[in-house]
Nucleic acid binder design. Structure first.
Lengths: 337, 337
DNA sequence: TTGAAAGCGGTACCAT
DNA sequence: ATGGTACCGCTTTCAA
């Protein structure tokens, strides 16, 4: 190993060619003779030369790296296994394409400004944006558009939606599938524990649930909101039981809430899935560990990450923004009959 | 917003000074008159100019970014909330210092080579290394040293330990604290569900457990190994019960294994904490959710991340490598009396 | 205190 | 095919 890294000059000299030739060789090898190519390759092998990516990006104007921008203070997010899955799949996919991932988190308005500034600094070619909160997302998309930064959003943009690439999940159909499954397995009175009011995801799921209940069971719709935490699921289930003591099915908008609901059910002396069938949403690891293992709708986070990267690359090539809607998959375990 | 980003030239021209002066202003403002400073500041404010970080790093030789290198294929790691906590705290701390984080994952030997090459490409000033597996860790530390790359390791390096910065947790004392607590609360026959054999962490914890058992209970030590998964904890607990039917305390080396053990206990008709007290290790979110909530040793991952960043910055300033050993904290919940 | 100019390590255009 | 060379945007002597 040498102290001072080699430069393209060293290689050129060593190989007896000009640096222009070496450069060409490095970038596809067109217009360089077999002869020269071989000599250059030899030298490179011998010296384990690696091009300085920064110099290169200065010259080309491309940085070969993209930012993963987490647009809001979310302690919870990092603790959320789903989020980690997303991040991991993005990191992998990017690595596969030879690009690097720069992580940017936002904890406050100050950091937000700094991040935006950083992005304008020419560090990255594009941005993968995660911002579940609608207002934040809109603002960020706006800023990014303004600086003409290519961006792919996880979730439906809800602003400039036709000029913004995004990848999201079909919440409406997922909810339909979940609720219908409960009905098919014999549940006649189905309640829903929804996420916080506001987000479009919540709306879509509630809509799906409502449509099925109306069609299939003829029973009224029972809806309580939680905040995705276990406790909120527990409390919501209690409220549900108060309103509809004969409830025999619960569709929860997250696995965590489903687990909380099951606890509440146990407290009220109801068995799962005997008395009440339960279905969750996410399929995070907890779903397999819970007692009994939870039937749930799986979010394809790995796939989402992969798509996001692909779509960003398309944008970088000058392609047009597209939106992808991925299906949710029903994973049957033991909280349904 | 303008199309072509501004350059230092534009600012200089606009402010009626040379780019050298602007540059000096940007870097601390020494040797630039009040007069000029004000004019430059004005122009910058007006144009929201941001220096091109790549050009800067080409000129200075410093990149202002560090790599988070995950040295081994670890599907599980990303699903591990602890890992996420670590990552998050590192991202935050780095952000606070105005540096950026480049994520590097390794899935196979190929990627490993690519990563190493990337590091040699001058992208980053230093590396934060996570590689739980001993062999991998040693190899990586070696490679990093060879290319004179500053590095801070999460975990005890086990190689070049006195010339390598690291941050780790005091497994030995943690195990002592956990086992002793069990004994103090009345457990007379304590078994341990340890992690996989091999890693130094496992060894240290086993040692701590042994020392306490020998001192306090006078009973023999019962040890079974798991692989940190829930199922392995379940099975290990069963083996433990077979060997020592009167067991009234279990110290598990991870929360997940503790939860598995509790399930096994239930199957054998033992109550927790009535018949058997259980204590876990990690304090991941699961510990609060489990039934009953788990007493456990908390790993200070946020603190670990912060320290790693701090120590890396020290290295970058030319400081000497140091090792930090952090204490584990006992979190009492309801699986102990 | 300031500015001119020589890099930093590549890329890419233009002759040859 | 190849080499010369003018940048890319910024930092950093060095002289003034």
């Amino acid at each position: 190993m040498r102290d001072k890294p080699m430069t393209i000059r060293d290689i050129a000299k060593e190989a007896g060619v000009s640096r222009a030739t070496v450069s060409r060789f490095l970038n596809g090898g067109h217009w360089v003779s077999e002869e020269s190519a071989k000599r250059i390759q030899d030298v490179i092998d011998r010296t384990d030369y690696v091009a300085n990516e920064r110099a290169r990006s200065l010259a080309t104007g491309r940085s070969n790296s993209v930012a993963f921008l987490l647009g809001e203070p979310q302690e919870l997010l990092f603790a959320d296994p789903n989020f980690s899955t997303l991040l991991r799949s993005i990191a992998d996919e990017l690595g596969r394409k030879g690009m690097s991932l720069i992580m940017m988190t936002t904890d406050n308005e100050n950091e937000n400004r700094r991040n935006l500034k950083y992005l304008r600094g020419g560090h990255v070619d594009g941005v993968l944006l995660v911002a579940w909160h609608l207002g934040v997302r809109k603002g960020l998309i706006h800023s990014l558009h303004a600086m003409e930064m290519p961006v792919v959003v996880a979730e439906y943009p809800s602003v400039d939606s036709d000029s913004t690439s995004y990848v999201h999940v079909d919440d409406y159909r997922g909810a339909i599938r979940a609720t219908r499954y409960l009905a098919e397995r014999g549940a006649g009175s189905i309640g829903m524990i929804a996420g916080p009011e506001g987000p479009s995801g919540t709306l879509a799921r509630v809509r799906g649930y409502r449509d099925v209940v109306k069609d299939m069971t003829g029973e009224p719709a029972w809806i309580e909101h939680g905040d995705y935490s276990k406790d909120s699921g527990h409390d919501a289930a209690l409220r549900l039981l108060d309103r509809a003591p004969d409830l025999d099915g619960i569709f929860a908008s997250s696995d965590l809430m489903a687990v909380g609901a099951m606890q509440a059910l146990r407290e009220r002396g109801k068995s799962v899935p005997g008395d009440v069938q339960v279905i969750g949403f996410d399929d995070q690891p907890l779903a397999q560990i819970s007692e009994p293992p939870l039937t749930t709708m799986r979010q394809p986070f790995a796939e989402i990450g992969k798509r996001m990267v692909d779509q960003l690359l398309v944008l970088l090539e000058g392609g047009l923004p597209v939106g992808t809607t991925l299906p949710l998959e029903l994973i049957v375990r033991q909280t349904t009959r």
